[in-house]
Write a protein that binds this DNA or RNA. Sequence first.
DNA 1: TTAACAATTAAACATTTATTTAATTGTTTA
DNA 2: TAAACAATTAAATAAATGTTTAATTGTTAA
Lengths: 124, 124
Amino acid sequence: MSVSTPHTHGQTIENFIDKIPSFDDFGKIAAIFKQLEDPNRLRIFWILCHSEECVTNIGYIMKMSNPAVSHHLRLLKSADLITSDRKGKEVYYKACNTPLVHQLHDVMEDVLRIACPFGNEHIL
Amino acid sequence: MSVSTPHTHGQTIENFIDKIPSFDDFGKIAAIFKQLEDPNRLRIFWILCHSEECVTNIGYIMKMSNPAVSHHLRLLKSADLITSDRKGKEVYYKACNTPLVHQLHDVMEDVLRIACPFGNEHIL
DNA sequence: TTAACAATTAAACATTTATTTAATTGTTTA
DNA sequence: TAAACAATTAAATAAATGTTTAATTGTTAA
């Protein structure tokens, strides 16, 4: 084995040290988790997993200003977690229907042990 | 229905607006995601999902200083994602064997599309 | 009991980020 | 076209966070 740690102690690290993904690889995952680190943003994401809503309504539910909501929506969208759709004057947002979103939704429900109001199969 | 959003547009939000978990509830989940938002910390977590390692070795692999590693380990531990075990002079860390850790590990593997070196059943 | 090593803690600094207020863009209807 | 409404963007501020250097605690071996 060509790679060796300072303290070789019979563990397995030397067996896969050269298979560890790079900093950049983990940066991609971290970018997703980063969007869910803020309680307000996470709550918005959860809501959009269960309903399609416009910015004003989200602000009303969240008791937040319009620009603050817009800020969070932009971040969630940049991570491909939600999509937007303008209908007249309003812009409607909802969660993307992707495996990742479903997985993240499941994690949320598990951690919260929420009874998902419509059952997980109703995620948007 | 007693609760109504500013723009009632025939969506489902009014049906579960009073079932939306609180800010504090989402704070609990966010606290977990928060620990995985930093690429370095996430990478450390991934390593500890596959091997039990001491602080010095983690620093060697990560090319990070000892205090920096210690800082990240403390945060991961405070979120119950890793455990520590002192053996002589060294303190060994590894991922907790909990459903949440397995779930987060799966998310990471899926996003990265890594071939888990030992298969997911070998997670520590 | 010293000396050496491993790990943590503390203080300081630089960077990032969430929110507010104000201004701007986009869309509808009067 | 003008007025009203919805949403976004910009600038500014306050708060949180990662890393470094230095000091401290804990453990082992000489």
